[in-house]
Amino acid sequence: MHHSFPDPLVSIRGLVYRRGDLVIFDGVDIDIPRGKITAVMGPSGTGKTTLLKLIGGQLRPAGGRIEVDGVDVHRLSTRDLYRLRMRMGMLFQSGALLTDLSVFENVAYPLREHSGLPESMIRKLVLLKLEAVGLRGARALMPAELSGGMARRVALARGIALDPMMMMYDEPFTGQDPISMGVLLKLIRVLNDASRMTSIVVSHDVRETAEIADWIYVISAGKVVEHGDREAVMNSENAWTRQFMNGLPDGPVPFHVAATPLRDDLLAR
């Protein structure tokens, strides 16, 4: 049933993760193909952010393996894990910009930490990255002065500062107005194709995400329920997938949370 790619960038097999007694992932297999945009979608609370943190090695799974570019993330020493992370970028939902540094300094931060380049070089690189997200003019602003969409674009510039092999996007579209949504969609596509990156977009904004995704995974209740290219998932026979992808109010996921009949509740004292 599982379709696998030859030589995927990220390969997840039999992933199990629990938070307390709550099972978040219960045997998940996912392959992220190189050079493509892969969307991982699912309702809120299915652990999409958790999945990215597992790939980034910030969380340890209870079972299964996660390989990135051929190495098992959770078997690496701290030093090697940090080295691997230099080749991964992640865009957090909130942007996660360092609030006490300006836009310029935020983008310069990973370069100053890891590149060892001279200041003049760092300046040029930062301006280029800011130009790529259209915010070169905002370099002197502080994060608190940015709108949500601009903050995400700055964070994106910071994420690509070290030219990573992959970018992970955590709910990049939540709470964005249509214009900044459109800007982000375009940026994700363009950056992916221009620098031959691999992108993972985690989202529950089905329509927007499906627009740019080459490959889609749908997860629910700790399992992969559907995967395939855009057409295949959009036209899925699976009733649950259909409800989720089309945003139908009722279906396999009932409108009402399980409860005693309304009549009994109203008549009860």
Binding site: G56, R85, M86, M90, A96, L98, P110, E113
Partner: peptide
């Protein structure tokens, strides 16, 4: 605000 997570993912 995920700044600490963000640092970790920047290998800091």
């Amino acid at each position: 605000t995920e700044q600490l997570s963000g640092l970790e993912m920047m290998a800091v």
